Amino acid sequence: MAIQKLGIMLEVKKEGIVLSKSGPGFEVEGVLNPAVIHYGDYIHMFYRAVGKGNYSSIGYAKFKTPLEVVERMDVPIIFPQFEYEEHGVEDPRIVRIDELFYLSYCAFDGVNALGALATSPDLITWTKHGIIVPQMMFDEFKRLAGTKSKLNEKYFRYNEHEGIKEKNGKKVMIWDKNVVFFPRRINGKLHFLHRIKPDIQIVCVHKLSELTPEFWQNYLLRFKDYVVIYPKLKHEISYIGGGCPPIETKEGWLLIYHGVYDTIKGFVYCACAALLDLEKPDIILARLPYPLFKPEHEWELHGMVNNVCFPTGAIVSNDKLYIYYGAADEHIACTSVSMTELLSELMLNLK
């Protein structure tokens, strides 16, 4: 297994593929972009499974160690049930807050891709709460978000949908994906990251019921104030998005996110790292000036979508950070790195 040397002291080890599609059925086209959580004696993985016609559901596997699968369901644990997700439930992330599991995912209705949420007390029974991000067309977003300051032109490029207002009988909305919750309340509030291209934004509320259309209208009036990270480095210059749920350390919240850059062969997705302030997570303290890891092996370079390392879940075990990611939108792979070394390297790159 290859070891990729980065920076002065940081070693990132590609552990390889940990889960592949199991054959005919709900994951015949691929498995990717998993949520993971260490609870009880096991690591629980909830992953995107792609069936025929690009219809996605969420499968489940149980790991005894970070790399050892001991159980796997042969049917999806979460699947499309409502109109807002009728074409797929995609790209889950999971945390546990106040003894309740929060599984955020992307709901795709065939036209719009929007952040949604399901919760569970036991990882078995799930209650869906619907879409939790703004549901609005680009013109309204542009009007609100551009009130206080001029919008970056990339917001037009990625969200205007070539001026299409309606498709398949549905209004075309701005896409708001990659909803990632922090794993505890901060100053009594729930915090989550979300992504309207090209930046990563943050939201904080006391309770989910606050996320009304009026909330989002007021939020967008001060939209620029809620941008946590924007693309500025070569390996993320096209756009960025949330990855794994933030990990609390004494130096700050460790955030593994994805960065995207364009090449003559198309977009390349890589894993990036940053530190956010513990009490004010809208403040970025540091970020690696290079990708933590990027596509280099055949199973990352070629697949359903080429050149993709898409991190979505992570656990810490004995000072080792295991990062699980979608590889070329077809497999689930894992990378490991020393937490101590990664944090030390980030501290050398304080803003």
Results as ranks from 00 to 15, higher is better:
M137A: 07
I94K: 06
M137F: 00
Y322N: 06
L10F: 12
G59K: 00
I284C: 10
I256K: 10
A333G: 15
V260H: 05
A286S: 15
P92I: 00
V308N: 11
K232C: 12
T65Y: 13
H129Q: 10
F108C: 03
F310V: 02
G252Y: 09
H258E: 03
D262A: 11
H87V: 00
S120D: 09
K189A: 00
H258C: 04
V227F: 03
P66L: 14
K64V: 13
E341F: 02
A116H: 09
K62D: 03
V337P: 05
I78K: 03
D225R: 10
T127M: 06
G23D: 03
K197R: 14
Y42A: 09
W216A: 06
I264K: 15
N178M: 06
A328I: 13
I332Y: 07
N54S: 12
K234W: 15
T127V: 11
L342D: 03
R96C: 14
S120H: 11
V205H: 09
P291R: 02
R185W: 08
V268F: 08
E214R: 12
P34T: 01
V260G: 03
S336P: 04
E330A: 07
P92C: 09
P80N: 14
W216R: 10
G40Q: 09
K177I: 08
D139A: 02
G59D: 02
C244P: 02
A118N: 05
M73G: 05
Y105W: 09
A61M: 10
L233P: 00
F156S: 04
L100P: 01
V133K: 06
T65A: 12
E11G: 02
L193F: 12
E210V: 11
V337G: 08
I124V: 15
M9A: 07
V12S: 06
L346H: 11
I8Y: 12
S22R: 13
T212Q: 08
G25P: 05
K197S: 12
Y219L: 02
P92H: 09
F156G: 00
I37N: 06
I237R: 14
K148G: 01
G303A: 07
N307V: 01
I196F: 10
G252L: 11
V75S: 13
M73D: 06
C244M: 04
T119K: 08
M339V: 15
A314K: 04
L233M: 14
P311G: 03
Q4C: 01
L211S: 04
G242R: 08
I77W: 02
S22G: 14
A314L: 10
F141M: 02
R143W: 02
E236Q: 13
Y42M: 04
I37G: 08
L123H: 00
V179K: 12
Y230L: 05
Y325P: 08
W126I: 04
A116N: 03
P76V: 01
V172Y: 08
H161Q: 12
E210T: 10
